[in-house]
Design a binder for these strands. Structure first.
Length: 606
RNA sequence: GCCGACGUAGCUUAGUGGUAAAGCACUUCAUUGGUAAUGAAGAGACCAUGGGUCCGAUCCCCAUCGUCGGCUCCA
């Protein structure tokens, strides 16, 4: 982080104070939560006497400007913990009182929601806390701040949202106001413009424009319907990954998307995931549920015969449909849905084989990312997701196993020289994992692919193999997805490519455009030849001008337009135009086919 | 699920306490055009759904459903 960014962060935090000052003066009796700096801006949480909406933001901004013009100082003072509590109690700032309590307990002045990284700060006893005062407004804060409000750059309040106090669902929901501030007006405008541009690339917007998928109220929320175009992208991704996995020794299997509840009772998933599973269906005397994950099915396949150490590792893979009852507010386009298809796999191996198996999975994932043109560090990064041992309601209790598994994963990453960060409380209940985190167009990060080390299930399902000495041993299981859930991966790709897919993924690869209706039958012939060559081609033989059709093809981001008029018909050629606007000139259809097939084969961007 | 906002033709949006407007798309006709929009005409909406207030509701109120911004959760 550069010094300049540090300065910007300090200014952002100071602007959060200015926001709080304005809100408190406009809405007396407002209780303050916290107001930290975030990427690209800041927020402040308030418990307001009455609800506010985005319509109130201009009014608040105006008040902020007024206060700013008074050129107030940010003056620091220190109080003992008991004085601080007294002061905050006198101002009826219950949340601040709670924070001081917490500081007293933990000796840590980091007030933001629990940080996700697991750096443990030394717990030195604290007897004093600092306050910053700006005009009438005083706030518990460890600082630092800029000197005067006049040093605050151009700012803008962006949105209002609800947020649970301390990030806990059981707590009261506060009103959060997001805003941002930059050093210069042009920086601010650039940022706002970037947000606008990002919105145009949102996969939900492009999905509609390009006709890739739709939702229907009658089908249900979180249940996207893929059009023929969307399905084409999905099919290409599926073919690619299945072929690649088979090449790498995976056994592609097919298992049913539902099962008896007992299966998930045995696996132990049921108590952990009950609230995100669809409720059981009673059929005769059986209780069935739609499967929320595929592991137990694959375990049953594993157990269907006796396994030798010579067989290991065994890699079962499946394009597995899974169902999770996500809360309605969590659903987002294709990014988060209620039924998704995961390129899933469970690898059964000896403990000794684990590092090698994890490595081979990461090799596959990196290969997939290369093919998809996702760059390490830029488009994705590794997260080592660890368990919070003390939380036995969430994580299986076995400290030694956790230590061992975490260490194996960490060592693999270190040996590969893969940059990663560690996150506490992000593991599966049965073991730690390596997540491949991808950023969407608005910078929000989601898990795209995952590699999980499981030391629990083999015991639960009594999985065994026979070792060299003829003795029964317990394998470990690696759960992994290579290209992730197709729905989510498609969402990422739509945004990554802005809808201009590489030719191999383009729903329509070629559109043949006759210049006049006289050329329609020649155009049909060309189209037939292309279709017979296994290419995805269409003719635009509607009435209208060539220019209009080019524009249409351009908006649909079709990679190639073949323009055919009198000249082409006489020469038995096609005039090739790319969606980049390049005119590749007239060429024989066979030559074009050869060229485009090469592009498709290489999975190149253009 | 929670807090807040929103829901008007296929799409994007305007608008009003007296049943609604535009552009694109669509259909028809004319145009036969050389690399990002040819012209004209037509058709298309019980203003998300169900209640309520009112002489009268697309507009105001309530509920439901859906979408969006967040929170929580997560592949």
């Amino acid at each position: 982080m550069t010094i300049k960014q540090d300065k910007l962060e300090i200014m952002r935090h100071s602007t959060a104070h200015l926001l709080a000052a304005a809100v408190q003066s406009l809405f007396p009796n407002t209780k303050l939560g916290i107001g930290p700096v975030i990427e690209n801006g800041f927020y402040y949480d308030f418990d307001l006497p009455k609800a506010i909406t985005e319509a109130d933001l201009p009014k608040i901004e105006e008040k902020m400007r007024k206060l700013q013009k008074q050129d107030l100082n940010f003056s620091k003072s220190e109080l003992s913990l008991s004085e601080a509590t007294k002061l905050m109690k006198s101002k009826k700032q219950d949340y601040k009182v709670e924070l001081i309590e917490q500081i007293k307990k933990t000796g840590d002045t980091a007030l933001a929601d629990e940080e996700k990284d697991i750096t443990t700060s030394p717990k030195t006893p604290i007897d004093k806390v600092s306050f910053y005062q700006t005009g009438d407004f005083i706030d518990l804060c460890r600082g630092p701040h800029i000197n005067k409000t006049s040093e605050i750059g151009p700012f803008k309040l962006l949105s209002v949202a609800g947020a649970y106090w301390r990030g806990n669902e059981k707590n009261k929901m506060l009103t959060r106001i997001y805003g941002t501030v930059f050093a210069t007006q042009s920086d601010l405008e650039k940022y706002l413009q970037m947000l606008e541009e990002a919105k145009k690339r949102d996969h939900r917007v492009l999905g509609k424009q390009l006709g890739l998928f739709v939702f229907a109220d009658l089908v249900g929320k979180g249940l996207p319907l893929l059009t023929a175009k969307g399905a084409t992208i999905r099919r290409e991704l599926e073919r690619f990954i299945v072929d690649e996995e088979i090449r790498r020794g995976y056994l592609h299997v097919i298992t049913p998307p539902l099962a008896k509840v007992d299966l998930y009772r045995t696996s132990g998933h049921y108590p952990y995931y009950k609230n995100t599973m669809y409720p059981p269906m009673k059929v005769d005397e059986e209780e069935l549920i739609l499967r929320p994950m595929t592991c137990p099915h694959h375990f049953m396949l594993y157990k269907s015969q006796l396994r030798s150490y010579r067989d290991l590792p065994i890699r079962f893979a499946e394009l597995a449909s899974q169902f999770r009852y996500e809360k309605s507010g969590e659903l987002t386009g294709l990014m988060r849905v209620r039924m998704f298809c995961l390129a899933d796999s469970h690898i059964f191996a000896t403990t000794q084989q684990a590092p090698q198996v994890i490595n081979e999975v990461l090799d596959l994932i990196e290969y997939v990312n290369t093919v998809l043109h996702l760059k390490k560090g830029e488009d994705y990064r590794y997260r080592l997701s660890l368990g919070k041992r003390e939380d036995s309601s969430k994580y299986y209790k076995d400290d030694a196993a956790w230590d061992r598994a975490e260490d194996i994963l960490r060592q693999v990453l270190i040996k590969r020289e893969a940059p990663f960060y560690e996150a506490a409380d992000e593991a599966a209940f049965y073991g730690p994992k390596i997540d491949i985190q991808v950023k969407n167009v608005l910078g929000k990060e989601e898990t795209a692919f995952t590699v999980q080390y499981d030391f629990v299930m083999p015991k639960r399902f009594d999985l065994k193999y026979i070792d060299e000495a003829g003795k029964e041993q317990e394998p470990i299981v690696i759960h992994r997805s290579s290209i992730g859930a197709f729905e989510r991966t498609m969402a990422f790709l739509i945004e990554k490519y802005s809808g201009a897919f590489p030719v191999w993924l383009s729903p329509v690869q070629i559109v043949v455009i006759p210049i006049t209706s006289d050329n329609n039958s020649f155009a049909e012939q060309i189209n037939r030849t292309l279709l017979d060559s296994g290419l995805r081609s269409e003719v635009d033989n509607k009435t209208g001008t060539m220019q209009g059709k080019i524009r249409e093809a351009q908006l649909q981001k079709i990679p190639y337009m073949l323009i055919v008029g009198r000249r082409e018909e006489e020469a038995k050629k096609v005039a090739v135009r790319t969606r980049e606007g390049q005119d590749l000139g007239a060429m024989k259809i066979e030559d074009f086919i050869q060229q485009i097939k090469q592009t498709i084969e290489s999975k190149a961007l253009i």
